[in-house]
Design a binder for these strands. Structure first.
Lengths: 358, 358
DNA sequence: CTTGGCACTCGCGTCGCGGGAGTGCCAGGC
DNA sequence: GCCTGGCACTCCCGCGACGCGAGTGCCAAG
């Protein structure tokens, strides 16, 4: 009973603080929200909430502000996910439908997400481990420089440049192309890597692709088999890279200006962090399986150095094992229900689009 | 004689203001720089410079600050391009050498440039109109969905997805591949586009690739020729896109925090502007031919709304007509000689790398 | 357990007041 | 004619005082 009201008070504090950005006092609370009690009562509840560590006052005789723990309780127990309006849904849908390829889909999503939430949006490229190899194209740029292009069933293309230590004529290149394609076309990425390993073992006997390749004068390094081994090695790398694609795209950094905090305390380190792929990947963390939205508040997240920030993420992708992560970074003082809804919605639509086009 | 000293005073003011970020007074000037005259004399010169509109004082009894016009004179008449140390040169060289492909080169360059200058770096993708078509690969993703991959001599790869209104078997795809390759391989981009147009005219008679293609039920739309026309149309688009590649990459936005100005007056609009490709392209402006570095100060630039910013750009690329632009955006109060040197150096090394690998 | 009352605390904006940096001008010297 | 030292003046900026107002905690009564 009384416990119930205390939570209602917490919810009211969070909601008010999020919208006004100012510490909220007992009087304002009872006026704005229809709790049928007096300010004095609310003050008692507040004292209690403060003892529990859910709210805190910046200084005596100021209003209250939710603590990280307070936000945690709010998110876990008090906040539903605000459903999106059908107009919003339509807007998301049509905007994402317009994408012409995977790159475009990612770009549009990240942009959309930042605009919907007014936070910094982060989208990891979809991990597509269950896609298959369509085709491998080998093109001689110069007699000793090969461009290897890997075409996957999901429409993605990986390219690598390979230096070889022997001049190759057109026939040799064509032969190589045939061999490699025979080994990998139609296979999933992991299986393709295995097929390549076999091919390499068969052809590149005794020839390891060490860092000093091309420098040894021995006869074994100048045969076609050595070249095959080189190309295969590069392909294996490309496959591995692709299977765990770690590219991340960011948008909406301008929203950082809304943080309120000082330039040097938050904005600058934040901007710096957002330019580091590694940091971004940490930020996104593990992809959550199954529709759930992960919320990490303040120090819970991987950005301890940047207190005052929350991260809202969710997984997306086709199928259970083809999962990547997207989400937003914002101040702990954010509209959690709305933000979570937007993140989930974009993830869903994106999954759908990828499913249709993949 | 006296004119000479006045310019020396201007130079001193610019240099001091750039390093201290504070209005510079007559006394500090004579102390820091070895002009052999008294503060009073310098004051007279300052009054003169102010009449000419080259410097100005924020308020009575404050030191002087260069105006945009003052910076202009400084850049045009007083500033040499500070040569880079050989250590710096080596660092640039080795850093860029490590790039594995064009994408990587661009990414590294933009990052490097922002770190060297401590400003926001902007690099346009190299325009490669004189590169040739190596190969076109056509792969059926599903019977009605073709992935067209365009491989160019410079190592870039463009991909497009084409929906066709007829199921294609492997033979049909192979045939299409052969045709298209015969038409374009070895050609420069513009010539390739012509070759494709001819092919399209020959095969796709009476069939225009309007927005409603695929909806018309007529017989002409279901033959292989129609498909050819579709594929060719997409290829022409891709070629055109590629010839005038308008992708732009940005790095170092964290340096905006060093602007000093307020968050809402400068930082936020700046961040917003930097997320718009269109704005970025305007920012880079026309590529300057022949080694010169362009400096646009304050309102001279295309960003009138953002006063207080200067843009330093230069062209780069292989040959005279294969030119793209890179540069930096920073406060008008910047180290022009050093910045110009860095921009020029990165452009040169980048051109070299592209030349070697292209 | 709730409520009204009341004294208390403390942040914040305003105001006024030097201190100091820098200027413009002038008269004298080279 | 140009440079220089001196001098009065202007104006920004930092600092402390002050009062207001919002908000609290506590208490006694309902």
């Amino acid at each position: 009973m009384v416990e119930e009201r205390r939570l209602a008070v917490l919810r009211a504090i969070v909601e008010d603080y999020v919208s006004t950005e100012e510490p909220v006092g007992s009087k304002a609370l009872v006026e704005r929200h229809g709790l049928g009690v007096s300010p004095a009562t609310v003050r008692n509840d507040m004292a209690q909430l403060e003892e529990e560590g859910l709210i805190h006052q910046p200084h005596t005789s100021a209003g209250r502000i939710p603590t990280d723990k307070g936000y945690r309780v709010f998110v876990d127990r008090l906040a539903g996910v605000k459903p999106m309006s059908s107009a919003e849904k339509r807007a998301i849908s049509t905007f994402l439908e317009g994408a012409v390829d995977v790159d475009d889909t990612v770009r549009r999503s990240v942009r959309l997400l930042s605009q919907l939430t007014h936070h910094v949006a982060v989208v990891q490229y979809p991990i597509l481990s269950n896609s298959t190899v369509r085709h491998v194209e080998v093109v001689a740029m110069t007699p000793r420089r090969l461009l290897v292009v890997l075409i996957l069933s999901n429409g993605r293309v990986e390219q690598r440049l390979v230096e070889v230590d022997r001049d190759l004529d057109d026939d040799a290149v064509a032969d190589l192309r045939t061999q490699v394609n025979r080994a990998v076309v139609g296979e999933r990425l992991t299986a393709a890597a295995d097929g390549l390993a076999a091919l390499r073992a068969a052809s590149g006997e005794g020839r390891d692709a060490g860092p000093d390749r091309g420098l040894e004068p021995g006869a074994a390094t100048t045969d076609a088999a050595g070249v095959t081994a080189d190309v295969v090695g590069v392909l294996v790398d490309a496959l591995a890279d692709h299977a765990a694609d770690q590219r991340v795209v960011v948008a909406g950094t301008a929203n950082l200006a809304r943080f309120g905090e000082g330039i040097d305390t938050v904005l600058r380190p934040m901007l710096e962090a957002l330019e580091e792929q590694v940091v971004l990947l940490k930020l996104l963390g593990e992809a959550t399986t199954g529709g759930g939205v992960t919320v990490r508040i303040g120090a819970e997240g991987p950005l301890e150095e940047l207190s005052g920030t929350s991260v809202v993420t969710t997984g997306y992708g086709v199928g259970p094992d083809a999962l990547a992560t997207l989400g937003i970074v914002g101040p702990t003082r954010m509209d959690y229900p709305g933000t979570m809804a937007a993140v989930r919605a974009v993830a869903r639509y994106m999954s759908r689009i990828l499913d249709e086009n993949g």
